[in-house]
Design a protein around this nucleic acid. Structure first.
Lengths: 128, 128
DNA sequence: TCAGTAATACTACCATGGTAGTTTTAAGGT
DNA sequence: ACCTTAAAACTACCATGGTAGTATTACTGA
């Protein structure tokens, strides 16, 4: 919000996603959730959550001896911000160009292309 | 290459873009190119270029008393890397989802949608 | 030849993300 | 009442991006 969301680090974003999925998570829960992908120390997660709280990204309430955290920024908002930032970075603002980059730069399956086409048709319908 | 390209900072990416556009640019030229958008000190650009050279992102050759820089990483490669990283961040790897995010998160003009549709058709044709 | 100038080199500083160890606190069971 | 344990708090450290001032060097024109 006040702090630009696109600047989120990888871990921060991952933590937010975890909290979007399960609001009111304890540090232990977030830590457990991230465990398979990142083998972080418990305190790493705790510290990051505290830092994120300072930045206004999350908030906590007490529950017994634990803190339960929740995200203060909406997934939508962050997605938009992060996406917008990429579009700016990649192609100084041209969405078409950005998507073109994405399409040409990796293998895209037939199936994905179909889905994408549907997405666009839908967007068209909505916009009309 | 060896260092993951997606980690490029905004300024670094901007400098690379400038060099892709005009290879063998002096510091002064890069500085001038960026001037309108970012009013940076000359030495800021020079320092960043030196740092980027250390990281293997650019290289220079001497021309009189100036250094002429060129990018060592290809635009394609960086675009792919940056794009891929975003897709991972935004939707743990689903391109469709990522594009969907981009589409729903901002105003997309009719015209852009048309272009996008064309892009996809083209990709389909290519992949077949 | 010498002063000015334009270039690089060097140094420094700050913020932030990421990571984690150590210390304190408090709850809970025996 | 005390020991264990789990939680938060505090502190610390490093890398990197970004930014720029100061020092040095070397060319160039008067």
């Amino acid at each position: 919000m006040n702090s630009p969301a696109y600047r989120l680090g990888d871990l921060q974003l991952r933590i937010l996603q975890s909290l979007w999925d399960r609001p009111d998570s304890s540090v232990a829960e977030v830590h457990a959730e991230l465990k398979p992908e990142r083998d972080l120390a418990y305190t790493t997660v705790a510290t990051m959550l505290r830092k994120m709280e300072t930045r206004g990204l999350v908030a906590h309430r007490e529950e017994g001896r634990s803190f339960l955290y929740r995200a203060l920024v909406a997934a939508e908002e962050v997605s938009r911000s992060v996406g917008q930032h990429l579009v700016d970075r990649l192609s100084s603002g041209s969405l078409t160009e950005a998507v073109s980059h994405l399409l040409t730069s990796r293998e895209v399956s037939r199936d994905e292309l179909d889905q994408l086409e549907k997405l666009i048709k839908e967007a068209k319908r909505r916009s009309k």
